[in-house]
Amino acid sequence: MLRKLHKYANPNKFSLIIMPIKNVCLYTALPLIAIGLIIGLFFSPPDYQQGETVRIMYIHVSSAWISLFAYVLIFLLSVFYLIWKFPLFVLMAKEIPFVAIIFTLITLITGSLWGKPTWGTYWVWDARLTSFLILLFIYLGLIFIDKAFKYNVNGDLSFSYLSIIGAINIPIIKFSVDWWNTLHQPASVIRASGPSINIEMLIPLMIMSTGVLLLFFYLIFTNIQSAIAEKKILFLSSKD
């Protein structure tokens, strides 16, 4: 199994493989996001408690899911890198934090704008909000490590170790609303007893989340191709 995967570990081959996938992601993501936006903004019903402000959910929740998913991806790629030492794993992992930090920032800003009319304040130091802010700082740390140790094996190892240590924050974010008393509402979609959210709100949320996920993959794949090309530039420059 692992031997079969070896041929895909060649960065040039990998770059060629992801080219068509990347385009499919973009051309599927854009219509899905457009449909999600139209349904979410104009056709989904207002919430019985939160009223029209619930429409912020379609961008807030989808971005939050991407922020968490991106970290899980970085964690897995770092673990794979430390086990199998394929440089492609860490190269891929290093391209994720910059994209993920923007989604984390979107989550925090849109959450803040949702919090003011719902809770009466833009920010509270409660468990969910604080742990999400820590996620933003972890992403910043990963970006700084990448910039500080560019093209260095020690940098790759530091990046992998930090991402594994930082992964402790992911279950804290997920379960913070169950473990502590917070202003933030508990999970209403991803929970053991099934979604409690109204189907008319769940559909645009799922459409939007799928669209944003595909857009995320498009951006990551483009970044990975750029990083592979950057390595080629380094190699060609060293020949001069």
Partner: peptide
Amino acid sequence: FFIWSAYGVW
């Protein structure tokens, strides 16, 4: 204000 600002930032 809150809804359109959130969508604008996004």
